[in-house]
Amino acid sequence: MNRNALLLTAGVDEAGRGPLAGPVVVAAVILDPDRPIDGLDDSKALAEPVREALALLIRERALGYAVCVVDTAEIDRINILRATLAGMSRALAALAPGPVLALIDGNQLPADLPCPGRAIVGGDALEPAISAASILAKTERDRLMRAWDAVHPGYGFARHKGYSTPEHLQALERLGPCAIHRTSFAPVRRLIAPALL
């Protein structure tokens, strides 16, 4: 692979496939080899203050980055896998400069990628560009969930970020689903179904 291709290789990752509430967020990042960033890793392996500091460096030093938010309505309409893949394509299409290759965390590629792609299982811990994308996706999703916590108090979104923790499940039972809950996910659907009968 020539230097230009290496320069324009994008890493892609998502945050928020598993939660019961909130969006899935996808990021694509083209790192600048002349401005390296130490400490990149899978976002889940990093403490929150480290992630936040790295996110600032990535935004400052990357050749390009894009973050795509896929909301709960789209997740419920087309399912979480398709929503994630759609977000990946959109994030890559939004990159400037455009990538010549996409390295995507996971085992599936979107059908409508704007460039050739390669799926890498565990890529967020193996490829620095995917690690960077993982960090941007996670920090942006966490920011959004903290904001939703203020709009929908009582669920604890700022703490659990919409994942199915005991605290969240108890709040869901007590309060019922709110506007950002994923109605296609079984624990939420189970609470809505009786109301529709």
Rank of each mutant, 00 (worst) to 15 (best):
T9A: 03
A15S: 14
L31V: 05
P36E: 03
A5Q: 15
V12N: 07
A28K: 00
P23R: 06
P33K: 02
V25L: 08
L46I: 11
D34M: 10
V24G: 04
I30D: 00
D42R: 09
K44T: 14
L40K: 12
D41C: 10
L40P: 06
T9N: 02
A47G: 14
P23M: 01
A45G: 10
G22L: 03
S43K: 06
R17T: 13
R17I: 01
I37W: 07
I30R: 03
V24S: 04
D38Y: 14
V12F: 08
V29R: 10
G16V: 04
A5M: 15
A27I: 12
E14F: 14
L20D: 05
D41T: 09
D42I: 11
G16R: 04
D34N: 04
G18D: 14
I30A: 05
A10Y: 11
L7F: 02
L31H: 03
A27K: 01
A27P: 08
V29K: 08
G22Q: 08
L20S: 05
A47V: 06
S43N: 01
G11D: 01
D32R: 09
A21D: 13
R17P: 11
V29L: 02
A21W: 09
A10T: 11
E14W: 03
E14P: 11
A27Q: 00
A27V: 06
L20H: 06
P36G: 03
V25H: 07
A10E: 12
V26P: 06
T9I: 11
L40W: 11
L6F: 07
P23E: 06
A5F: 14
A5Y: 14
I37Q: 03
A15G: 10
T9D: 03
A47L: 15
L8R: 11
L6E: 15
G39N: 00
D34H: 13
I37S: 06
A5R: 15
G18A: 14
R17D: 04
R17F: 12
A10N: 07
V12Y: 12
L31T: 07
D41F: 09
V26Q: 10
I37P: 06
R35N: 09
L46P: 04
A21S: 05
L40E: 08
